[in-house]
Amino acid sequence: MPGAPGGLAGLALLAVLLALPALAPAQPVPLPTLSIGIEEATSPRQVSVLIELLLIFTVLSMAPAILLMMTCFTRLIVVFSFLRNAIGTQQMPPNQVLVGLALFLTAFIMTPVFVQINETAVTPYMAEEVGAEEALRTAAVPIREFMFKQTREKDLELFLGLAKSPRPQNKDDVSTFVLIPAFMISELKTAFTIGFILFLPFLIIDMVVASVLLSMGMMMLPPIMVALPFKILLFVLVDGWYLIVGSLVRSFGV
């Protein structure tokens, strides 16, 4: 058939050209290397910088615990959890919403404390006017004042006795490691007290609905299912979020 040999030759030439790159030696692909080692420091400043970085990473890793232990976050999230259980909405609002609301309220309530820490400790330290130890001592003062205002004397005496510490003459004699757990259990008691008060109106609705259903002979109908719309309606009519959030913020003296 005319033209067939030429066509076959062209196809053979094209196959050879395509196979040449595969037959050529593969070029080495440069790979990055990573080396970790310990070298001798040439100045004390290099050692101090490494120690500061280690302390910063340690504080960052403990930031969630610091947020839970030394701020108002614990009271807020416990009360919100009690509220959700009292209404009986199961996972509404979801945990992410409650935690986010508690975090923003924590930032709002703790803003005066954070501003004072920034003015008295962080800014002088960044300007190299004070050392790290003095900056930490200065930053602890506003936090300790906040915790002292929310801590009951009974709880403070409990941990002073457990630590076998001598009776302090003033607040400065109280160790921070004694103050933090006393502040925590005081916050938990306050949060549980508020949660109990929140439960009462919703418990009354549950009891009324259960009594009505029982008197009507509807024993197979779950009272919780019938009471839930009434509890949500009550919470909306009284503007519950406004009342609860306002009361929580005012309870910290804001």
Results as ranks from 00 to 15, higher is better:
1 M>V: 12
2 P>S: 06
6 G>K: 11
8 L>N: 10
11 L>C: 01
18 L>S: 01
18 L>D: 00
26 A>N: 03
32 P>C: 00
32 P>S: 12
33 T>A: 14
45 R>T: 11
46 Q>A: 13
51 I>H: 08
53 L>G: 04
56 I>N: 05
59 V>P: 03
59 V>L: 15
70 M>I: 09
78 V>Q: 02
79 V>P: 11
80 F>E: 05
84 R>F: 04
86 A>I: 07
92 M>L: 15
93 P>L: 08
94 P>E: 10
102 A>D: 05
105 L>P: 09
107 A>R: 12
111 T>Q: 12
113 V>W: 01
117 I>S: 01
119 E>P: 01
121 A>L: 02
121 A>S: 07
123 T>I: 09
124 P>M: 07
125 Y>M: 07
128 E>Y: 09
135 A>G: 14
135 A>C: 12
137 R>Y: 11
145 E>D: 14
148 F>G: 03
154 K>E: 15
159 F>N: 01
159 F>E: 05
163 A>F: 15
163 A>G: 06
168 P>E: 08
169 Q>L: 10
170 N>Q: 00
172 D>K: 14
184 M>F: 15
187 E>I: 03
193 T>D: 06
199 F>C: 00
201 P>N: 06
202 F>Y: 15
207 M>F: 14
209 V>A: 04
219 M>W: 04
221 L>V: 15
222 P>Q: 05
228 L>H: 09
228 L>Y: 08
236 V>E: 04
240 G>D: 02
242 Y>W: 08
245 V>N: 04
246 G>L: 01
247 S>W: 13
253 G>E: 10
